[in-house]
């Protein structure tokens, strides 16, 4: 496959994953605004921005947490930033814009139906404004955005030929997912800590963010939520598609499919690096005695290693 097309598929898929994730962050946030305390809502915004590694739009969030009006005004500004701001590379519009720009260049690879749906979804988003969303059930709007991104991935799953292009697309999806989940867990721990008093709802919302609520219940059958169990599930479960373990394992599989039959040293190094990431996920979660700080350190190490892996894939395949 043409290296530039592979790069386009890889990034298109990353941006779609990111758009879906940001939409889910906002759904959860608007759900929280229905019945949670102002303090918890404020902390949830912090969780989002800390995970993205960027300051909130309009500056620090340390406003008067007792004031409901401030909470609403902040929510309006922050939702606008996370939905429409083009300079915020995590905003839904920005992610969809870049997914579309990548897809536009490889329309001969992705198929007409996928392109038309992506283009329509983007044009609809481009013509929306926060003021209209705000008065028209914002949660529904974000649910639609999440659905759009999922449907688009579904089109690709059901129609794409399983050649190298497909494997690059899947690698993009799972590398992005690993990074999004790892960053979210770090910020969850930093903002709420695993022994936070009013933790149930925040840990439930974390599971919703990782599409894990149902799967967790089925596996654990616990009456109350234990943050350590939630973390363990989201990091090391082997069957949940939004766990870190699952995402790294799929990345390894797709990478193996691409690199089969090639004896390049740099490919062997990438493979070794990915396997080492998987080993560290397995090993570290055998110990439940770690402090929050240690968990965060491990996750951050994983994040750096994962980013490094991407750079190596980039130089081995896209800019070789």
């Amino acid at each position: 496959m043409l290296a530039r097309s592979a790069n386009g598929l890889f990034w298109m898929s990353r941006y779609l994953e990111r758009a879906e994730h940001t939409a889910r962050l906002l759904i959860t946030q608007f759900e929280a605004m229905e019945d949670r305390s102002v303090e918890e809502i404020d902390l949830s915004w912090r969780r989002i921005y800390l995970a993205m590694g960027r300051p909130p739009a309009g500056g620090d969030l340390s406003s008067n947490v007792e004031n409901e009006d401030f909470m609403l005004m902040d929510a309006y500004t922050l939702a606008d930033d996370l939905t429409f701001e083009l300079v915020n590379s995590d905003s839904i519009r920005s992610s969809m814009y870049f997914a579309r720009e990548n897809a536009r260049q490889i329309r001969n690879v992705v198929g007409r139906q996928f392109w038309t749906n992506l283009n329509s979804a983007y044009l609809e988003l481009k013509n929306s404004r926060i003021e209209y969303i705000w008065i028209n059930k914002p949660k529904n709007f974000y649910a639609n955005q999440e659905n759009n991104a999922r449907t688009l991935s579904g089109y690709l799953d059901s129609s794409m030929y399983r050649d190298d292009g497909w494997h690059f697309l899947q690698m993009g999806r799972f590398i992005e997912r690993t990074q999004l989940i790892a960053a979210l867990l770090v910020s969850q721990i930093k903002v709420f800590s695993t022994d936070f008093n009013h933790q149930d709802s925040t840990w439930i919302s974390l599971m919703v963010l990782c599409n894990a609520r149902l799967a967790y219940r089925r596996q654990r059958s616990l009456f109350s939520i234990n943050p350590r169990h939630v973390l363990e599930f989201l990091i090391s479960d082997t069957a949940h598609p939004h766990s870190i373990h699952y995402s790294i394992e799929r990345t390894i599989e797709h990478f193996a499919a691409i690199s089969t039959g090639e004896a390049r040293a740099e490919l062997t190094a990438i493979s070794r690096q990915l396997k080492s990431q998987l080993r560290s996920v397995k090993k570290n979660w055998r110990s439940r005695s770690m402090t929050d700080v240690q968990i965060c350190e491990n996750l951050q190490n994983l994040l750096s290693s994962n980013r490094e892996t991407y750079s190596e894939i980039e130089s081995a395949y896209f800019f070789n």
Binding site: L2, R4, S5, R104, Q105, I106, R107, N108, R112
Partner: peptide, 15 residues
């Protein structure tokens, strides 16, 4: 793009 897709060939740029 359209023609590359119709023909099932790669669409390349100079680089």
């Amino acid at each position: 793009l359209f023609l590359a897709r119709e023909m099932g060939i790669e669409l390349v740029q100079g680089e």
